[in-house]
């Protein structure tokens, strides 16, 4: 892999990113910096470009213009999804997508950092270390009892938990988490916030969320997106007080 000299201290560096679909600008000159170890919440109304931003970072969508640099050296606009994932960017989708024909345990095993190449997997059995790590994650997401259940049989909340477990198993440097608490009960929401804060001790996290109480519970820096650009940045209280934010998002 080619490595450019490290140019920024930021873990993730977006500058002037523009994406347009048939004339419609989903992202418009967006810039964003995530420091190592940081947790950031991204909020914004529907169509603000949150999901497109995630797509650009993970290599699903190529930007028309702009720079996207990970870890100060990897140009994400040139790499494909699998490569970006192995660099250490994990993504949890808005709609939970777990492997329905696999058990919870196999789901986690697939996500587990390590083997990815097809020929190595042909003869490999899970190692002791891998089994231990699986047990650990199963206990964090409290799904030991369901570990042999098929993904298809899980409830919506269980799928959300499994997705979080898969993120943990992947052990990325940066986690992109899209609406983690959608469809969860208040108690589950509170637990999720706890888990994310716990995870943040060893990983950088970007959370996209609509649920204001959840964002408040996280207590982190907030970025407000609007029409593909950054509208405001700061603590939740700061941005909530910003009249432009009130105008476009929180409404009257």
């Amino acid at each position: 892999m080619k490595t450019a000299p490290r140019s920024t201290s930021a873990l993730l560096y977006l500058s002037g990113v523009t994406v347009s679909f048939d004339g419609f600008k989903a992202l418009n000159n967006l810039s964003l910096l995530i420091e190592p170890g940081e947790m950031r919440a991204i909020i914004g109304p529907n169509g603000a470009g949150k999901t497109t931003m995630m797509d650009v970072i993970t290599g699903k969508t190529r930007p028309d213009e702009g720079e996207v640099v990970f870890d100060g050296q990897a140009d994400l606009t040139k790499l494909d999804e699998a490569h970006i994932a192995t660099l250490g960017i994990g993504r949890k989708f808005q709609k939970p997508t777990v492997f329905e024909n696999h058990t919870v345990r196999d789901n986690l095993l697939l996500a587990l950092a390590g083997l990815r190449s097809w020929y190595k997997l042909l003869g490999a059995a899970p190692t002791r270390a891998e089994n231990n790590r699986l047990a650990e994650i199963l206990s964090i997401i409290r799904m030991e009892a369901q570990q042999h259940m098929l993904g298809a049989r899980l409830s919506h909340g269980q799928k959300q938990w499994l997705e979080i477990g898969m993120l943990l198993a992947q052990n990325p440097k940066l986690m992109l988490v899209d609406e983690p608490v959608a469809g969860m009960t208040d108690v589950e929401t509170e637990t999720t916030a706890q888990v994310l804060r716990e995870v943040n001790k060893s990983h950088s996290v970007v959370v996209v969320e609509h649920d204001m109480s959840f964002v408040r519970a996280l207590g982190v820096k907030v970025t407000v997106l609007h029409e593909g650009s950054m509208l405001a940045e700061g603590s939740l209280d700061q941005v909530s007080a910003d009249p432009r934010v009130v105008e476009v998002y929180l409404g009257r």
């Binding site: 994990g90 696999h102 095993l109 697939l110 990815r116 190449s117 097809w118």
Partner: peptide, 28 residues
């Protein structure tokens, strides 16, 4: 029955999800 097979079926069911986990779906 191998871990390759587990990954293969996962590719069949949700190919792009596997890519985001770092698997090169096309090689499988």
């Amino acid at each position: 029955g191998s871990r390759f097979g587990t990954a293969l079926i996962a590719v069949r069911d949700a190919e792009s999800r596997m890519r985001f986990l770092g698997y090169r779906a096309e090689t499988y």
